[in-house]
């Protein structure tokens, strides 16, 4: 437990020092959202209908963008090897790394999304659901994505491969996340969607740490 807390603190400090890594996904998110009205049409009714999906897809891609960095730095300076050698369970340490990724990527994206929702004239009353669904969903995204990041961390050109591996696995989260926002707009039951997102998160929390630990061992030991 002490080791987990130490890893958490170390990673948080490290990430906060390199501010651009934290800010880049947020800027990317805002930029992509800006492109859509320019590419499609500034018509508010049209934008409002596609806004839930747009916001979710853009946030998903922004989270994907930062995924390669979850283990990359630690791999290059050798501290990942130290983690593997430490007596603490690797799954728990990996989980704390994923938690840091979510805290500094998923959560800020979720908090920023309502702002971009206003710009896409998302109907009122769905902002809370948007932020909540993104916060819940992006935690699953971080967990699933970390498996891919751990598998590709040893490869020199892992970035493109990472998105190929991870994006298909993101689809259920995307469907229910965007579905929650859509349900909120149409006045349907939001609770069911959020419950499924929660269930996906719970399943990911159970399985992903072990898959991440196994993948890290493969990447380090060849």
């Amino acid at each position: 437990m002490v080791a987990v807390r130490a890893t958490l603190r170390r990673d948080l400090v490290l990430r906060m020092r390199g501010r651009s890594e934290v800010l880049n996904p947020l800027v990317f998110f805002a930029l992509v959202i800006t492109l859509f009205p320019l590419g499609i049409s500034p018509d508010p009714t049209l934008l409002a209908t596609i806004a839930p999906g747009l916001l979710w897809v853009a946030a998903l891609l922004a989270a994907l963008l930062s995924l390669d960095g979850v283990f990359r730095g630690d791999f290059e300076d050798g501290s990942l090897e130290q983690l593997l050698l430490s007596p603490q369970p690797l799954a728990a340490l990996a989980l704390s790394k994923v938690a840091v990724h979510w805290l500094l990527t998923g959560l800020p994206l979720a908090l920023m999304a309502p702002l971009l929702g206003i710009m896409l004239s998302l109907p009122a009353g769905s902002y809370g659901v948007l932020a909540l669904s993104l916060a819940l969903g992006s935690a699953s995204l971080s967990l699933i994505g970390a498996i891919g990041a751990a598998l590709t961390v040893g490869l020199s050109r892992g970035g493109v491969l990472l998105s190929l591996l991870v994006l298909p696995l993101y689809i259920p989260v995307l469907i229910f996340g965007a579905g929650a926002v859509q349900a909120a707009i149409q006045g349907g039951g939001v609770a069911a969607h959020l419950a499924i997102l929660g269930a996906l998160l719970a399943a990911a929390l159970i399985f992903a740490p072990f898959a991440i630990a196994a993948s890290l061992r493969i990447s380090i030991n060849g």
Binding site: R157, L161, L164
Partner: peptide
């Protein structure tokens, strides 16, 4: 993805 990952190592 599976085929590409195997080939990348």
């Amino acid at each position: 993805g599976v085929i590409a990952l195997r080939g990348a190592f």
